[in-house]
């Protein structure tokens, strides 16, 4: 008994659950009277399930993936943005850290103010560069906004530690110019809902 390619394609689609209920019912009737089609359907089901199973039964990543990703991405980040970060204030370094660790860390963050003590300084800096209205400021704005988006959406549990690690790796000890150590700028008040 032979089957035409069109019917085979329908069997393939049936095995993958891609047919409408009416088409599926009609084809199941054909399967009952055609052993070759029935066999193909069984095989297709097996293939489809095996491919789905491959992802569902995947092993967990080996321990230390975080560290390996950070080790691989931080030098890259510095190459990409090194010149830029040379004049960035500390809030930008914090944002850069958010960029990296925000993708890696679990959420949710229950208390944004507690989890992001640098956020107010970052946002104050964001306001400053946004006020400059230059292409560079707009670029920095987009980068920082994306960084904050990543950090907030992904959630950060050990954010402070990671920021300190990142700053140590890229800038050395905190300098007296660190904006976190100066009083808030009255021209750039903290954003509501985010503690200074």
């Amino acid at each position: 008994m032979t089957t035409d390619p069109f019917t085979e394609a329908r069997v393939t689609a049936l095995a993958a659950g891609e047919l409408s209920s009416e088409d599926a019912a009609a084809l199941r009737g054909e399967l009952a009277s055609n052993p070759r089609l029935a066999r193909l359907y069984g095989e297709m089901r097996g293939i489809h399930r095996a491919l789905a199973d491959f992802g569902d039964t995947a092993p967990r990543p080996a321990p230390g993936l975080d560290a390996r990703i950070l080790a691989a991405t931080l030098p890259r980040f510095r190459r990409l943005y090194g010149r830029r970060t040379a004049y960035w204030p500390t809030w930008a370094a914090a944002a850069a850290a958010m960029l990296v660790v925000g993708i890696l860390q679990p959420g949710p963050v229950k208390d944004l103010a507690a989890a992001f003590p640098q956020a107010s300084a970052a946002i104050a800096g964001l306001r400053q560069i946004a006020a400059q209205q230059s292409d560079r400021a707009r670029y920095d704005f987009e980068l920082l906004r994306a960084s904050l988006g990543v950090a907030i959406e992904g959630g950060i549990v050990e954010f402070e530690d990671r920021v300190r690690d990142f700053e140590r790796a890229t800038r050395g000890p905190a300098s007296p110019d660190d904006p976190r150590q100066t009083p808030p700028d009255p021209a750039n008040p903290p954003v509501e809902g985010v503690a200074p």
């Binding site: 092993p59 990543p61 080996a62 390996r68 990703i69 991405t73 993708i103 987009e142 980068l143 906004r145």
Partner: peptide
Amino acid sequence: PDDADELTQDIFMRLLTVLPAYRP
């Protein structure tokens, strides 16, 4: 898993490169 590790690192590097292009 080993190759997945390597590709994951490549993906994060790519994300760093293209992240400024992200628009909410």
